[in-house]
Nucleic acid binder design. Structure first.
Lengths: 296, 296
DNA sequence: AACAATTACGCACCACGTAAGGATA
DNA sequence: TATCCTTACGTGGTGCGTAATTGTT
């Protein structure tokens, strides 16, 4: 038996009408009928007297109505208390994040998290992946959000969402009108890359190698230390670049950059949350992990 | 959310073990896990701390546990009270039944009904179908159980169960070893029938006519005024007869009669409950009707 | 290894909405 | 005819058990 069924039953009992109750609980009239019937079947007796013009509770219905209202109020009370308790939870979470995640994804997650846990203190460190992992194994961080899964016996690692690395070009670029390009066309184009050691660079290099493209195949190859710098460079027409789709949401809205699909080059990776396999240092850290996982 | 889920949750909370709880509530361990997970998802937080060796309630789990136990006890209380009320209902039901139903089906139904409503007074009149219908239209009876559906504007009529009319023969009959016979073989056999006006006789005659068999095709055609007399006659080898399957349950168990399927002759009819379309005279009458319908 | 819990998967059932079907004024 | 409730039916979602997997002692 469902709490919902009790709600529907009470709605009918309170209004003495199936159709009004249906509107009140946002169900179709037949659905309400069936819910009540199912209750009646459960008790093996009618709960409502269906006279045509107005229905009324049978004695058994009256009994159930009293108790059902009690149950519903307790249920709502439990709901309130649990949410109150959640809202009043205090605690500190030490979160580490690698660059792209920390810059473009985490702020939103932390914002929503603070809304759910107003008293939580989230301390964020944006470092490169290796550094984050070190801090995690030393138990200085509670959890880390990374651009690739880690393989470390001491750390658990769950996928959060898949990130796509897209090719961006300036609006003046000859490809600006194209629907897509193929990998071979990239030869000779001036390519802008992140510095070595960047997670994004590693996955881009690997994908290009898989597509039989080498660094020497490109025109000028330029290295910049931040994604923001790369975007600016591409906007200025200095070349093309591969960046996370998360990094260019604003620019796409503004129209200052264009994304061109490379038909035979799909670069994807998983954003992951990593945390010590052992028990969490604080419940808040645990909440943060499960919360992050639900943020898709 | 289901009451059942709360029960499962409480079972886990009380035993601090998923596997023990699973046994206690007769569910598989994974099912219990899923129930709890669904609750945890509903509240967006963990309700149990899963340390390996013993699980414990989180503060939120504690809150829910308190309330859930309340809800369950109210739920059980409602159940008890409703059943008590049902058990204490008084009232009189005037039931009419035609012969076969009244003799072989109704006693069991009334027995079960009395168990559910110990204070109910059921008055039974066994009459022929036409008489029952008359008493119903005159509002002398609350409801009638008949061997065929009635078509009467003042009466509602619901099918209860389908009755099969079977061919019975004595144990000494040459067909006694046969698995089945075909309709044509019936020619020349001495047939024993109920008196004209019997519901059973009408449906048998019609079925035989549909199978191109006429009364003249049989050997001696004998008429007896009761099913009991017919069975005795068949047991004595005086002939074959068609009777309701309900009428020969005991004889089949005893082995004093045999049922031979007639392969190309399936005689079926519906046992029906008929009652005035208007409101029931008493709630007990209403209960009897819905009760009878559930007795399959 | 052994035990406890979770995830995966296939099946069956159930709840819902739409549409059609009474019953009553 | 109009209103209200019930029945019929197709679909999507959910609960279940079995089996495989993970994680811990």
């Amino acid at each position: 038996m469902t709490i919902n069924q009790l709600e529907v039953f009470c709605a009918v009992a309170a209004r003495r009408s199936f159709s009004l109750a249906a509107k009140a609980v946002n169900l179709s009239q037949p659905a309400v009928s069936l819910q009540v019937q199912s209750l009646e079947e459960h008790y093996g007796t009618r709960l409502f007297d269906r006279s045509v013009n107005s229905i009324s509770l049978t004695p058994m219905g009256e009994i159930l109505y009293q108790h059902a209202r009690n149950i519903l109020s307790i249920w709502e009370q439990a709901d309130r208390e649990i949410r109150d308790h959640i809202g009043s939870m205090e605690g500190e979470v030490m979160v580490g994040a690698s660059t792209t995640v920390g810059q473009y994804v985490l702020p939103r997650v932390i914002g929503n998290f603070q809304r759910k846990f107003p008293l939580a203190v989230v301390r964020l460190q944006v470092k490169n992946t290796a550094e984050i992992i070190r801090l995690l194994t030393e138990n200085i961080l509670d959890l880390g959000l990374l651009e690739a899964s880690v393989d470390n016996k001491k750390l658990a690692c769950d996928a959060l969402t898949t990130d796509r690395i897209v090719l961006i070009i300036g609006t003046e670029h000859p490809w600006a009108g194209r629907e897509y390009v193929v990998a071979a066309e990239l030869r000779g184009e001036p390519l802008i890359l992140r510095e070595p050691g960047s997670g994004t660079r590693r996955v881009v290099e690997r994908a290009l190698r898989d597509a039989n493209l080498r660094m020497e195949d490109f025109g000028r190859v330029m290295e910049l230390g931040s994604t923001e710098a790369i975007k600016t460079a591409v906007e200025s027409g200095l070349g093309i670049a591969f960046v996370s789709q998360w990094a260019v949401r604003k620019e796409l809205q503004l129209g200052s950059l264009k994304v061109i699909p490379v038909r035979d080059l799909l670069i994807e990776r998983s954003f992951c949350v990593a945390y010590p396999r052992q028990k969490f240092k604080s419940r808040m850290a645990e909440e943060f992990v499960s919360f992050a996982k639900k943020q898709v």
